[in-house]
């Protein structure tokens, strides 16, 4: 889980990880394969193993919900039309979204868009799932539902998931290994238990920014 304040470089880091940005230095390894060293075919091989959930959902406006989920399946597999639809419907059911197949993204609520985006991200059974602020713009209740959905899917399919967030609720709820980004740098790294005890000034400013979290701290 990657946390940090707005504009600290979280999205940028994630895009470097999935190969959407050119990198100035360093390397990105997927099971010892360096993404930026690979040729076109090798990159495509890795992309097939990556699912990504974008901050705004990034659903294709001109396609229906079902077509959105079918799209990556068509790109990466040679399934027949009905197999693709079955797979898409399976994914949509997994995210608890029924009867929305023929709607367009503009007709969906924020939470539904996120669900479709998750369904699309897991459509080709990725090994890695990258989520950019999966609960930004959602109400607290829907946020938790989406967070838990990501957690469940991660455990169920044995996916390695990287989640970006600035929401401490999510960190407490589904965090595991946590990395704190500050001004574009990897500032602090540790587990969920450690982050509540750390003395690091910038991390504390972030974690205990709300009254609620401050109260929580005094109870420890």
């Amino acid at each position: 889980m990657i946390i940090g304040e707005s504009g600290s470089g979280k999205t940028t880091l994630l895009k470097c990880m999935v190969g959407l940005n050119e990198i100035d230095g360093g390397e990105v390894l997927f099971n010892d394969r360096n993404f930026y060293d690979l040729d076109f075919k090798g990159k495509k091989e890795i992309r097939k193993e990556i699912g990504m959930l974008f901050q705004g959902g990034a659903l294709f406006d001109s396609k229906t919900v079902e077509e959105n989920v079918v799209f990556p399946i068509s790109m990466f597999t040679e399934m027949t039309e009905s197999e693709k639809r079955d797979r898409a419907n399976f994914c949509l059911q997994r995210v608890n979204l029924q009867n929305a197949n023929d709607l367009y993204p503009a007709e969906l609520s924020g939470g539904m868009k996120k669900r479709v985006a998750i369904a699309r991200a897991i459509a080709v059974q990725p090994k890695y799932l990258f989520c950019d602020e999966p609960n930004s713009g959602l109400d607290p209740k829907t946020s938790i539902v989406i967070d838990n959905l990501i957690k469940e899917i991660t455990d169920e399919y044995g996916i390695t998931t990287v989640v970006i967030t600035h929401d401490m609720n999510s960190v407490i709820e589904i965090g595991d290994n946590i990395m704190f980004i500050y001004k574009g740098d990897n500032w602090w790294q540790g587990s969920k238990e450690e982050i509540l005890r750390t003395e690091n000034q910038e991390v504390c400013d972030f974690v205990y920014a709300t009254k609620f979290m401050k109260n929580l701290k005094t109870k420890f």
Binding site: K15, V18, G19, L20, K43, K44, R47, K48, I50, M52, F54, Q55, G56, A58, L59, F60, D61, F71, P72, M75, F76
Partner: peptide, 11 residues
């Protein structure tokens, strides 16, 4: 809206 990034991710 990152739809272009989404296309790139799908290879």
């Amino acid at each position: 809206t990152e739809q272009i990034d989404a296309l790139e991710i799908m290879g």
